[in-house]
Amino acid sequence: MTSTEPLSDGELDELDELARAATPGPWFVRGLDDEHAMNLVAVSTTPDTGLGERWPNFDHREIVAATLVQQPRYVDAADEHWDENAQFIATAREAVPRLVAEIRRLRSQLEAGAQSESRETS
């Protein structure tokens, strides 16, 4: 989605479907650490404790995405924006459905206003 064109109703439906199909939110950024995933930056269904838990002291089923896994180097953004990417992913979980709903609400208001204006000029 790099187009500058307005989102179509079909595209809004697709975004809505993607959000509904994803693991329920909210999502949180977590910093985890162990010899297998050194300095793991993850997106999780549970908040970060600040303890940098080591496996098996965290439930792997809570992790929905990772933006940094250093040992071995499985996940690593070239620009080193691991924390920022994780925050974006976690925030998008709640923001995308809200943005879709807001676009639909505003379009509905515009349509109602246009219909009202059309009746007034008839």
Rank of each mutant, 00 (worst) to 15 (best):
G113K: 04
E111V: 12
P97I: 04
G25N: 04
G113P: 00
E120D: 11
T23C: 11
T67D: 02
T121I: 15
H81M: 13
T4S: 08
N39K: 03
L68W: 07
I63H: 02
D13Y: 06
Q70A: 12
V29W: 00
G50Y: 01
H81G: 10
A92T: 12
T2D: 14
P72V: 12
I89C: 11
L18C: 05
R104T: 00
R73I: 13
L12W: 02
A65K: 02
S122H: 13
D33Y: 02
Q87E: 13
F88E: 10
R119D: 00
A77R: 05
L40F: 12
E11T: 09
T23D: 09
V69I: 15
V100A: 13
A77V: 05
A19E: 00
T67W: 00
A112H: 05
P47N: 04
D13F: 02
F88I: 13
A66D: 10
F88M: 13
E94A: 09
T2S: 14
E5L: 09
Y74N: 14
A22W: 00
D83Y: 12
E111N: 13
L68R: 15
A66T: 10
A22M: 02
H60C: 09
V69Q: 14
P47V: 01
V75Y: 01
A22D: 07
E117V: 14
F58L: 15
V69T: 11
A65G: 05
D34H: 05
S122L: 15
D9E: 15
A19P: 00
R107W: 04
E120H: 14
G52F: 01
A95Q: 08
R93L: 09
V100T: 07
L106Y: 11
T23R: 09
N85P: 04
N85F: 06
L106H: 13
R54A: 15
G31L: 11
E102K: 14
E120P: 08
I103F: 05
F28H: 10
P24I: 03
E94L: 08
A42R: 02
N57L: 15
D79E: 06
L51W: 06
Q109I: 09
S118T: 10
V69C: 07
D13I: 11
G25P: 02
T121R: 15
Q115A: 12
G10F: 06
R105I: 01
E35R: 04
P47A: 09
R73L: 09
D59H: 02
L99D: 11
G25R: 02
A78T: 14
F88G: 09
L40R: 13
S44H: 03
R54W: 10
